[in-house]
């Protein structure tokens, strides 16, 4: 695997965390979370990558043809499914918060601290 994939993954994760830390809107924050998540996908796909190898589908290739690692692809696919649920849940919660509070700025949404 080339060093480029590692760098891209680290960079994506870094800007994602930077975005979360400086966020002033929850939908933006959830977007940044998705950026962090794509960093892990780049990392995983980079790990499984082989030069001069095809997709791991042996329908029209004889078994033994070089192919990229299917395990990490399965991992990514599984995580995409789980994370879709997570993002949907986060957005649903954000929607409910907006209905009740009229704002999505984390600065104004601190549990236990609105009655002072």
């Amino acid at each position: 695997m080339s060093i480029l994939a590692w760098c891209v993954a680290a960079w994506l994760f870094g800007i994602g965390v930077y975005g979360i830390v400086t966020s002033r809107h929850y939908v933006h924050l959830i977007g940044c979370l998705a950026v962090c998540q794509s960093a892990t996908y780049v990392l995983l796909l980079g790990i499984g990558f082989r030069w001069h190898a095809g997709p791991p589908i042996f329908y029209d290739h004889p078994p033994g043809t070089p192919a990229v690692d299917p395990v990490v692809q399965a991992l990514v696919l599984t995580d995409i499914v789980v994370s879709a649920a997570m993002t949907a849940l986060l957005l649903a919660i954000a929607l409910q918060v907006h209905k009740r509070r009229g704002t999505l700025d984390p600065q104004h949404l601190r549990p236990f601290r609105q009655e002072k």
């Binding site: 993954a9 994760f13 965390v17 979360i20 929850y26 924050l29 979370l33 962090c36 998540q37 960093a39 892990t40 990392l43 995983l44 991992l75 995580d79 994370s83 997570m86 849940l89 986060l90 919660i93 954000a94 409910q96 918060v97 009740r100 949404l109 601190r110 549990p111 236990f112």
Partner: peptide, 22 residues
């Protein structure tokens, strides 16, 4: 509070699970 607590919970723990996957 439960919605806001849940947001804090979800964001931090979601980030943790990305770290775990990596």
């Amino acid at each position: 509070s439960s919605l806001e607590g849940a947001l804090n919970f979800t964001v931090t723990n979601a980030l943790a699970s990305f770290l775990m996957l990596a």
